[in-house]
């Protein structure tokens, strides 16, 4: 069935069966491959995207559920050539190695800026625990998030 999704501010019309997840629709049909598949079962966070500004997992959402909702993927984060401060902070603090969990980490981290997460490193660790990083880049991730939060970016 045809469904029109608003992805990164643009309408995208796809012809999908109801069983197609947002994640597979993005990766296999829209060829927006920044959003990663790590587990396909809500267990790793690699597929984190924003729906109406809130972080969610694309692997557990059917594409058809999202008609009329605003979807943001990592591709929609940077303003043209200018990186979002979170992206820049991830580079600066080496908040990744292989980079595969990174899109999910960054989308989670950006959403976190608007959540009532406490100020401490421990708070950030807890709020970011839904994003596994098997490369173990956690200290860099926390440093990046804290830097952006302290700079007051939204």
């Amino acid at each position: 069935m045809p469904v029109t999704l608003r992805i990164n501010g643009r309408p995208v019309t796809l012809d999908v069966e109801p069983r197609v997840t947002l994640l597979d629709a993005l990766r296999e049909q829209a060829l927006l491959t920044a959003t990663k598949k790590g587990c396909d079962h809500g267990q790793c966070g690699a597929c984190t995207i924003h729906v109406d500004g809130r972080r969610q997992l694309a692997c557990l959402i059917l594409a058809v559920m999202l008609a009329e909702r605003e979807i943001t993927t990592l591709e929609g984060l940077a303003a043209g050539d200018e990186l979002h401060p979170m992206q820049a902070a991830f580079i600066e603090h080496d908040g990744f190695q292989c980079g595969y969990c990174t899109p999910g980490q960054i989308m989670s981290a950006v959403a976190l800026l608007n959540e009532p997460c406490g100020d401490s490193d421990d708070d950030v660790k807890e709020c970011m625990s839904g994003n596994l990083c098997r490369c173990g880049a956690y200290p860099g991730i926390v440093a990046a998030v804290q830097q952006v939060r302290r700079a007051g970016a939204r």
Binding site: L31, T33, A34, K37, L74, E75, L83, D94, G99
Partner: peptide, 21 residues
Amino acid sequence: MSRVDGRLKVTGAARYTAEIP
């Protein structure tokens, strides 16, 4: 030095195997 492929990775432009069109 920051990773030379850092930008590709934080923007999602780095294509991993399953993503090659």
